[in-house]
């Protein structure tokens, strides 16, 4: 098997995650789909690291993870406060320019 297949898998997971972001209304699921996309990227980065024979790709993937963690913390906090004020986690409910 050619390791390029990892890249194809990453592309597929990314596309699935992206369609999830676009299709789902629940903010939490939406976030999960974003995480899925980030993970797909990480897989691609790790594969590139193997391809080039150095560790820089892994470093970038590591940073991606850290940033993703930060993002999730803030994002979930936003969802929680949104849910508190609206009693709904649907992103479509927040369609107006005001609360």
């Amino acid at each position: 098997m050619n390791p390029v297949n990892y890249l194809y898998l990453a592309a597929l997971l990314f596309a699935i995650g992206a369609s999830g972001v676009l299709i789902r209304r629940n903010a939490i699921v939406l976030f999960m789909c974003v995480e899925l996309m980030l993970n797909a990227c990480n897989l691609a980065l790790v594969t590139f690291s193997r391809m080039h024979g150095n560790l820089d790709g892994q470093i970038v993937a590591f940073f991606t993870m850290v940033v993703a963690a930060a993002e999730v913390v803030v994002g979930l906090a936003i969802i929680v406060s949104l849910f508190r004020s609206r009693h709904s986690a649907s992103v479509d409910d927040a369609s107006l320019m005001k609360l």
Partner: peptide, 13 residues
Amino acid sequence: QNGYARTYAVSMF
């Protein structure tokens, strides 16, 4: 510009 973030996301994507 319907205010739905998902619509904007589609156009971005």
